[in-house]
Amino acid sequence: MSAVIRTNNLQKYYNPGEPLEVRALDGVTLEIERGEFTAIVGPSGSGKTTLLNIIGGLDHQTGGTAHIGDTEITALNDNQLIDFRLHNIGFVFQAYNLIPVLTAKENVEFIMLLQKRPKAERDARTEELLTEVGLADKMNNRPMEMSGGQQQRVAVARALASKPQFVLADEPTANLDSQSTADLLDIMAELNQKEHVTFLFSTHDQRVIDRARRVVTLEDGKIISDVRK
């Protein structure tokens, strides 16, 4: 298997060199292979979100490198990062963050529009993804007309719409009840198994940790354990 994500001695310091220096990431070296279903866990302030932000091209490191495939993402400027994120990374957020004025179908299609994909391809992929997440009958519903679990499933479909190299999911189940969490994890596990989509979660949720096939634990910005099941 080839590595989708590689970080080498990744560092993120706030107020470097000052008395109040904070080491959010302190030399994280990690490889995520294609098709992995990995959870990044750790207490609050351990550096989970910072790690995901740098891997996701949303934040800059203080030191070290991060590669997505063959691209050193930590060497890209802001404009290059925007384009890179659009074509290579899928995002699932804790609060779903769907566009409330668009329907489920339009929310999924929107990413492909940004990628300038042809209409026929957009339509087919949107239908396919919403069917896979079990929302074929909710295509024309707006987020307000759906439950939290359904909204998060739309968010997963949206994350996959751009055919990314991997999906970053930041606490994706934090706002969901048990049943919705179970349903969402089932869908993501199935997508991972069938389509070899690489998922990387940050989570506190034991239910997610239990389903993950690899668990990386962070503490004080360092990896303290990396367990493959």
Binding site: G56, L58, N79, I82, D83, F84, R85, L86, H87, F91, F93, A95, N97, I99, P100, I111, L114, R158, S162
Partner: peptide, 16 residues
């Protein structure tokens, strides 16, 4: 903010 943050995160450029 959250919505705009999401749009920028997923790759909507500044011009758009």
């Amino acid at each position: 903010k959250r919505e705009l943050g999401m749009l920028m995160s997923v790759g909507m450029n500044k011009t758009k």
